[in-house]
Lab assay of single mutants.
Amino acid sequence: AEEIWQQSVIGDYLARFKNDRVKALKAMEMTWNNMEKKEKLMWIKKAAED
């Protein structure tokens, strides 16, 4: 689920960090860890469908 979420937001994060992939990935990891369980559930369901 986290991978699907990352694939959907990586472009936004890379743009925000001027294509600094290391910073973008760290920010994504922090965002994922801070997400509410119900927000993650949507992505977990999406992962299950694929």
Rank of each mutant, 00 (worst) to 15 (best):
T31A: 15
D12R: 07
M30Y: 10
W5R: 01
E2S: 06
Q7M: 14
K18F: 13
N19G: 11
V9N: 04
A48I: 11
F17D: 02
W43Q: 03
D50I: 15
L14Y: 03
A15E: 15
M30D: 15
A1G: 11
K18L: 12
N19V: 02
W32L: 00
I4A: 10
N19A: 06
R21I: 13
K18Y: 11
K37G: 10
A47K: 03
A24L: 03
I10M: 11
E3V: 13
A27F: 11
D20W: 01
R16G: 05
M42T: 11
W43K: 02
E39L: 07
R21W: 14
D20G: 01
D50H: 13
L41R: 05
E29P: 00
V9P: 00
K26P: 01
Q7R: 14
L41P: 01
D20A: 02
Y13H: 02
W43F: 03
A47I: 06
W43Y: 03
N33Q: 10
A24H: 01
L14W: 02
N33E: 12
V22E: 14
M42A: 07
N33H: 09
M35V: 02
N33I: 13
V22F: 09
V22Q: 09
I44N: 06
R21P: 05
E2P: 15
A24Q: 01
L41F: 08
S8Y: 12
M35L: 05
A1V: 05
K23A: 15
K46T: 08
A15F: 09
L25I: 13
A48Q: 14
F17Y: 14
V22I: 12
D50R: 05
D12A: 08
I4E: 03
I4F: 15
M28T: 02
Q7N: 06
E36H: 07
I44M: 08
D20C: 04
I10T: 04
G11D: 13
I4L: 15
M42L: 14
I44F: 10
R16E: 08
A48K: 06
R16V: 11
M35D: 00
A15K: 11
I10V: 05
K46D: 04
A47R: 03
E2A: 10
A48G: 09
E39C: 10
D50C: 13
W43D: 02
K18E: 14
N19E: 07
A48D: 09
A24D: 00
K40A: 03
N33M: 11
K18Q: 15
E2Y: 11
E39F: 03
N19T: 03
A24K: 00
K40M: 04
I4C: 07
G11R: 13
K40Q: 06
L14C: 06
Y13K: 00
M30L: 12
K38Y: 07
K26H: 14
L41A: 14
M35W: 01
T31I: 09
I10K: 05
M35I: 02
N33L: 12
M28S: 02
I10G: 03
E36Q: 03
D20P: 00
L25V: 08
K45G: 10
N19S: 11
I44V: 08
K40R: 06
I44D: 05
K18W: 10
G11C: 11
S8G: 06
M35F: 04
T31G: 06
K45V: 11
M28L: 07
K45T: 12
A47N: 07
N33G: 06
V9H: 05
K38L: 10
K45S: 09
D50A: 11
K46E: 06
W32V: 00
R21M: 12
L25F: 14
S8L: 07
A48M: 15
W5V: 00
Q6H: 09
I4H: 08
A1H: 04
M30V: 13
E29T: 11
M28D: 00
I44Q: 09
M28E: 00
I10P: 01
S8P: 00
A48S: 14
M42G: 11
E39Y: 03
F17C: 05
V22T: 13
D50W: 11
W43T: 02
L41C: 15
L14G: 00
M35Y: 02
L25K: 07
V9D: 01
R16I: 14
K18C: 15
K23E: 14
N34T: 11
N33W: 09
